[in-house]
């Protein structure tokens, strides 16, 4: 594999990591708010808090990793996306800032307020919507470069069916992933009432997720035929994705093996995400920027890859420790610690 491909793969893995952990977090925020207004808060609040409190900061780092890493590996992305995305990027920063800090204020400041809860819920849906604009733009046609000036075409962005399709897909996926995880977590916590609530959430978001997924798949065909035909070549990966989706939903529906069901959901998104990503190559920004012309020099690439491997050797044991203490420690999950 060339350095370019290693680089983009590393980054894509981190983005996938963010997709999963952030979806859990974003969805949990929404469910927490939703249960607040439907007076079911006491039922699900506990498991949401117990899981999220120790890990929220870790979630954020995945994202930072991605956008710092992409500038390291592909410095030219800073130029194109940086110039074009001033407004959506700033909006995302503000939403992330409000979300992160108000979560901490509510949790550690120990005050339960309606405002905090609302901010936490609303940002959970708005952030994925604003972040996915980057993926939308990368398909081409939303951005023009004339004599060195990069400009985003807001009219095009806000009126295209594809871009709205992606937004909805992002929101539904967030809710589905999150509910599938919370179902598993509630079952580990042996919290029956919470399990009933979140299981219902998982089942109700399964349908919208897969339907928008399929719709967006075909909308992309109109938007970027090159990318679409590359994706068709990888049809089997989307096939696996669909099969794992069905299997996960059936398990949850039959109230069995929630852990396996969540792993299947992760596989569902892994295959779809990587099929989408590898079909997108070599373009980082269609048709302006490919991974080859935007790549950093070899010395930096090698240094970053070594740093990455060294970093992983440090992080993986630490993450395992974190998970053993909070995710797989039955006493903690059940609230006995």
């Amino acid at each position: 594999m060339s350095y370019e491909v290693v680089g983009i793969t590393v980054l894509w893995i981190f983005l996938y990591g963010y997709l999963i952990v952030a979806s859990i977090d974003f969805g949990a925020g929404f469910f927490s708010y939703y249960s607040h207004i439907t007076n079911k808060k006491h039922v699900v609040h506990n498991i949401i808090q117990r899981y999220l409190s120790p890990v929220w900061e870790v979630t954020n780092v995945f994202l930072v990793f991605f956008f710092v890493g992409i500038v390291g590996f592909f410095p030219d992305t800073a130029y194109y996306y940086g110039t074009a995305l001033l407004i959506p990027g700033s909006v995302a920063i503000i939403l992330l800032a409000l979300r992160g800090s108000y979560y901490a204020f509510a949790t550690y400041g120990a005050k339960d307020s309606h405002l905090y809860s609302f901010l936490y819920g609303a940002t959970g849906l708005l952030i994925p919507a604003s972040l996915t604009t980057v993926l939308t733009i990368s398909e081409g046609g939303y951005l023009v470069v004339d004599n060195g000036n990069v400009q985003l075409l807001y009219g095009e962005l806000f009126t295209s069916a594809y871009s709205w399709g992606v937004v909805f897909l992002a929101i539904f996926s967030v809710l589905f992933i999150s509910a599938a995880f919370l179902t598993y977590y509630a079952s580990r916590a042996k919290d029956k009432p919470a399990l009933e609530v979140v299981r219902k959430y998982a089942l109700s978001w399964a349908g919208p997720t897969i339907i928008t997924g399929i719709v967006v798949f075909f909308l992309l065909g109109k938007r970027n035929p090159v990318h679409f035909s590359n994706m068709m070549d990888l049809w089997w990966m989307f096939g696996i994705s669909f099969v794992t989706f069905v299997a996960a939903t059936v398990l949850i529906w039959k109230r069995r093996n929630y852990g396996t069901a969540f792993v299947l959901v992760m596989v569902q998104f892994f295959t779809a995400f990587f099929a989408y990503g590898s079909a997108h190559l070599p373009y980082l920004l269609y048709p302006y920027l490919t991974i080859y012309d935007g790549f950093t020099n070899d010395a930096m690439a090698l240094a970053l890859i070594i740093a990455f491997i060294g970093g992983l050797l440090l992080l993986i044991p630490s993450l395992i420790l974190l998970m053993r203490l909070f995710l797989f420690d039955a006493d903690y999950v059940e609230g006995k610690k």
């Binding site: 780092v61 710092v68 500038v71 390291g72 410095p75 950093t296 740093a307 970093g311």
Partner: peptide, 8 residues
Amino acid sequence: GLPLFLEI
């Protein structure tokens, strides 16, 4: 890029 990356 290296120290920026390492910082994370």
